[in-house]
Design a protein around this nucleic acid. Structure first.
Lengths: 147, 147
DNA sequence: CTCGTAATGAAAACGGTTATCATTATCAAT
DNA sequence: ATTGATAATGATAACCGTTTTCATTACGAG
């Protein structure tokens, strides 16, 4: 069972702990999916994860990828990334907020901090009569390598 | 806050002109779709448009809805709205930017102005090494009626 | 009015996601 | 370790929204 059990990075180990402590079993298909997603610099969709994970774990089924994504999203370990070319890709990260910076060429994604939208939110709220509860902010561009 | 002070009839007429001057024919199915979309306060998907338009034009085919949406998007008269519950809805508006304020209950959407993200964009750009070319900003909340 | 052809609606095809189901593998209790 | 209940799996089929195909219709220039 231990072809996959080489030294794991911290994030992978953390996710496995998180699954286990939520009452889910620690299975090889799940580990194969997590190995890919926890170490990816860019958002991946189900098929991409499937193809990458099968390089190390060829018996993986596509359905298990979908089911693992469900669990990881539920545990807030990954989040969906919205993009002009599709909205079914996932990346390791935080939920609630979407402060993503995405390279339009290679897809590499980074989170960023430091936004203070409070003044704008208050202004828009006052003008519109809306109570604003959530916001999405995403930047697109070219990363250092691709430009 | 309302960046388009055009009456509804005018918008419909404007879209029809726009189609015509782009070399497209002015057909009844297209008018039926435009009647719905040009006057909607919220984003609608193909099926919703289909159902609403057939109330006045029962022979409309679903495929014509898709084809008309293609044209209107190409002419930048409508734009796709990304939402936690789906990303295949359209609303009258501008492209390139996504400065939308959306009610989480009734779906009513408004555009807003007044964002100055330049300082943040410069900051993130400097820290990340990215050249930032585009941004999406969306607020979610409760409109005056729904709260 | 006529005619070339863009546009149409119905039906079939398509592709990504979800449901079904018999089989397997995890893990707590022995 | 061994067992046993059952969560999880992979293969297949079903599903559903979108796209393609194609014979027919209707727009609009002349």
């Amino acid at each position: 069972m231990d072809n996959l059990n080489i030294t794991r990075d911290k994030r992978t180990a953390n996710w496995l702990d998180c699954l286990r402590s939520s009452g889910y079993r620690l299975t090889e298909p799940r580990q194969a999916v997590i190995d890919i997603l926890a170490n990816s610099q860019r958002a991946l969709n189900a098929t991409e994860i499937f193809d990458l994970a099968r390089e190390n774990y060829p018996s993986l089924g596509l359905v298990s990828v979908y089911r693992t994504l469900e669990k990881l999203e539920e545990l807030e370990l990954i989040q969906k990334v919205h993009h002009p070319d599709g909205c079914q890709s996932f990346i390791a990260g935080f939920t609630g907020h979407q402060h993503l910076l995405i390279c339009q060429v290679c897809g590499q994604a980074e989170f960023f901090e430091g936004d203070d939208l409070t003044p704008l939110i208050e202004h828009v709220s006052r003008e519109s009569g809306f109570t604003i509860e959530e916001h999405w902010l995403q930047f697109f561009g070219l990363c250092a390598k691709c430009k």
